[in-house]
Design a protein around this nucleic acid. Sequence first.
DNA 1: TATGAATGAGAGTTCATTCAT
DNA 2: TATGAATGAACTCTCATTCAT
Lengths: 195, 195, 195, 195
Amino acid sequence: MSKDPQPIHPRKIEIVHAAVTCFLERGYHQTGVRDIAKQAGVSLGNLYNHFKGKEAVLAFIAEIEGEELSEFIDLLTEPDNPQEALERFIDDYAAYVSRPENALLGVEILTEALRNPMIAEVFGRNRSRLIDAVASCLREGSKSGSFTSYDDERAVACMILDSMEGHGLRSLSKNNIGENAMRTLHAFLLNGLEP
Amino acid sequence: MSKDPQPIHPRKIEIVHAAVTCFLERGYHQTGVRDIAKQAGVSLGNLYNHFKGKEAVLAFIAEIEGEELSEFIDLLTEPDNPQEALERFIDDYAAYVSRPENALLGVEILTEALRNPMIAEVFGRNRSRLIDAVASCLREGSKSGSFTSYDDERAVACMILDSMEGHGLRSLSKNNIGENAMRTLHAFLLNGLEP
Amino acid sequence: MSKDPQPIHPRKIEIVHAAVTCFLERGYHQTGVRDIAKQAGVSLGNLYNHFKGKEAVLAFIAEIEGEELSEFIDLLTEPDNPQEALERFIDDYAAYVSRPENALLGVEILTEALRNPMIAEVFGRNRSRLIDAVASCLREGSKSGSFTSYDDERAVACMILDSMEGHGLRSLSKNNIGENAMRTLHAFLLNGLEP
Amino acid sequence: MSKDPQPIHPRKIEIVHAAVTCFLERGYHQTGVRDIAKQAGVSLGNLYNHFKGKEAVLAFIAEIEGEELSEFIDLLTEPDNPQEALERFIDDYAAYVSRPENALLGVEILTEALRNPMIAEVFGRNRSRLIDAVASCLREGSKSGSFTSYDDERAVACMILDSMEGHGLRSLSKNNIGENAMRTLHAFLLNGLEP
DNA sequence: TATGAATGAGAGTTCATTCAT
DNA sequence: TATGAATGAACTCTCATTCAT
């Protein structure tokens, strides 16, 4: 429930930053622990003083990513105007997942979560929080008549997230989609929610 | 346009099957070339007689996956009834991506394509074909008045694919979504396309 | 004593040429049997129909190199004028070992002969023939008063050969020696032999 | 000019010794990195903590061989009596190259230098130093009237080195040359230099 | 003769992690 | 906390050679 009560050693943060840099550049599996240590300017042995192992570093990153979701979740929770809140969320989250580091790290964590329980645990927790927040906003909106009512709001929430994250991922490759793709996406989603 | 004129050596197919099995079980990077050879019942050296290397195996798998898309593309191309075609596609493609092997392999190939040019080339080609087919179907539908018209049909197409594939991926994890999630998805998409 | 009575299969010659090309380019150990077969445009299996193995190819090359020495040996054997013959030999052999293919192959065979008995046998036999020829010429020359007499003509012969071959080897690298180095060498050798 | 300021890890030296032993026994290409590690009593992974790779080990050996040349170079540099210095050098260097380990390693390094730039660099540097020293001694000697003057002292220097090293190489094989060959060589060289 | 699939040992190198200092 | 030497299994890939066709 409570966040880390004890302050985080600055070295640990440096290591995480280095790891993020490496994972973005080469990917999780292609990155060696040595690479991270070198990038962080830390000895190999000392890295293991701060993290139990390589996957603990990724788990920590996933944890941090989870914290970054809080602002989105706040936006969606108990909104005065669900439609306005959702539109704002779509714009903000689109901007978030369009930053390459977020898109890349996100897919890296997702794929690792598919087989690595330690990562799956953190990833699943974060994911649930976000889906719940969007779903609850949809429910609020449908109650107040702003949105069509759907049986399974979580499914719709997932779809919204998937499509935005998919967009973010696509913006990484050269076969880029038109600039106003996001606008179209936004319009489509609202259109689908219109009562 | 033309497929490989020379027949594919049966051993090559066995190796691919073995590789798929391994990649599904452990993931691409966690699978060793030895694992594939052993699974295929083939000597390590002989594997290299059939494939230039590990990534060539994955590229070949991606190629095969691409061929499997053809039936979907046929479905969407020059349809008599665009709406019917799209609905049919949504159902069929949903079933396709809900099979774990397709969902898992798909994300494996996608993530590898992010950094591996050889994989990116095959993956990008396949992806484009599918997006184009969906987008062209949307365009036909909007011309005939079945669908709302969108500026950027490819963006909508991507969204449709992303949301279905995201669903397929989610169905892998235990935190499963409700069974009728797919139905909700279907409804939402059609709702968004309704003129 | 007798040369190959049976004619050599033309394919065998092609393989040898290919092998020479490869050995020059990459060196004996860095060249694979596959490389040779590919270079020769011959199947891997068929190469083994013509040669017992990789080292048999090198041995055959060494044999051929040995045959090329015959003209030099003829030059030196029972000469009318030993001094003239030796000078002619020095010029001709200098030209021979200055051709990169001869210099490179020579050192390749020499080093392999250090540890490979099969190669050592061929190489040693060739070497002896040449040393003997030069030594006998020196002996003739000293008898007729053209040359100083040395206790050990074979040692002098070796020295003459070594210095010329060393020169050939050096001409391979960029740190090239002056163009008239060979002339200096020639002068020095004759000076050392002058009675 | 300055040697490694940081001390060399003793393990590194052990590895080099082991590598020398292996290279002498089997040759550079026939020796595996595992062989070196085993011979050194070091784990395979740890060898790579001390050397970037196999060729780095050979380069290091070449470097050490280069350092051993310093005493010869000192002998030849600014000598009070060039002739005496050269004669002393010929004797000492003959003894040096007649030790099997020096002869074998020398030719191993030479042949590797033919195609491996990393080795070529070290080898070429060492070689130049020695040639320059001999050539400068010859030049001094010719100025003081002890030696005949030659246009290209470096060419003569090369010849002297080649013939001695060739002698060393030959002393490895069973087809041994007479014991007093070296004496003959010495006499010949001085004879050729006599004014 | 000719083919190229098949073999499996072995190549050089990197891996995540531990441990003595 | 901090270091980097040490480990040995695992990595991808190549090797010379054989064999069924």
